[in-house]
Amino acid sequence: MERVRDLASKKAAVIFTKSSCCMCHSIKTLFYELGASPAVHELDKDPQGRDMEQALFGAFGSTQAVPATSDLMDKVMRMSSERGVVIITKSSCCLCYAVQILFRDLRVQPTVHEIDTDPDCREIEKALLRIGCSTAVPAVFVGGKLVGSTNEVMSLHLSGSLVPLIKPYQSLLY
């Protein structure tokens, strides 16, 4: 655990991955696309990688140390890439509703997944947080890429950057 803490403290963004993990690759790509330069530690290439993985299990109370081993992570990624604009929500969330209305006002018919009806709801929320959502819901994806939650979407909208991003998905007839 000491080695994990030491490595994690060396940089603002640190990612523990496995080189064969497709979700790990996606997360690294996301960080690079956002202009970050994280420290990346490939557990399968480190002589102490197995011990570090066990320490990560314990530290985060998880059944996995890296994302790609999760069927739920795959489920989230599948849901997020179904259509142009996808919003993962909960039916009782007023911010989720507000984000849906924003997209409809911008002439976009998003695909909406209400996860509170899914038996894996809690785990899906954890997976959304793991891939970078500031809050689990709403989670907005455009073109299969995570845009973020309410704050990120509203910031993009207020800066004038949201409409160009969603232009390919706007309907003239909507």
Rank of each mutant, 00 (worst) to 15 (best):
M154V: 14
L165W: 07
R122G: 03
P110Q: 04
T17G: 05
A98E: 10
R107E: 08
S81D: 15
S62K: 03
L156A: 03
H113L: 03
D116W: 04
E82Y: 08
C24G: 13
L162M: 06
R122F: 04
T111E: 06
E152I: 14
P47V: 15
C21G: 09
M52Y: 06
L162N: 04
I124W: 07
S149H: 02
M52G: 01
V137I: 14
E125W: 06
K18V: 09
K75V: 13
K145E: 15
E152T: 10
S81R: 10
L128A: 03
P164A: 09
C93S: 15
I101S: 02
Q109P: 00
M23E: 12
D44I: 10
T117R: 08
M79N: 07
L34K: 12
F31V: 05
Q64N: 03
V137P: 01
L156Q: 08
L56Y: 07
K75G: 00
Q109D: 12
L30M: 14
I124F: 07
C93D: 15
T135E: 09
Y32I: 15
A12G: 01
A65P: 01
E114N: 10
A13I: 14
Y174R: 04
L102Y: 05
C24F: 06
C94S: 12
I87H: 00
Q54S: 13
S134I: 12
K18T: 09
R5E: 15
Y97N: 08
I15D: 02
D44M: 11
L172T: 02
E123Y: 10
E152H: 03
T69H: 04
D51H: 10
T63N: 11
S161P: 00
P168R: 06
N151T: 13
V66K: 00
E2W: 09
R83N: 03
S19G: 07
S80Y: 03
V153D: 10
I88H: 01
M79Q: 11
A127G: 05
L172P: 00
Y169Q: 00
T29K: 14
Q64E: 12
R78N: 09
K10P: 02
S92Q: 11
T150C: 13
D116N: 14
G144A: 10
Y32G: 00
R104M: 08
V153K: 02
D51I: 11
L158M: 12
S37Q: 12
C94W: 07
C96T: 06
P119G: 04
C22N: 10
G160T: 13
A36N: 02
S70H: 06
L102M: 13
S37W: 07
V85G: 01
P138Q: 06
P38L: 15
F103K: 00
D105R: 07
A65D: 05
V85F: 05
I131M: 14
I27H: 08
T150V: 07
M73H: 08
I124Q: 01
G84E: 12
R5A: 14
S149V: 03
Y169K: 00
C96Y: 01
K126F: 05
V147P: 01
S70F: 12
K28P: 00
S91Y: 05
H41G: 04
M1K: 03
S171K: 05
R83A: 11
L72Y: 05
P47M: 11
I131D: 02
P168G: 09
S62F: 04
V85L: 10
V153G: 05
V86L: 10
D118R: 05
S26Q: 14
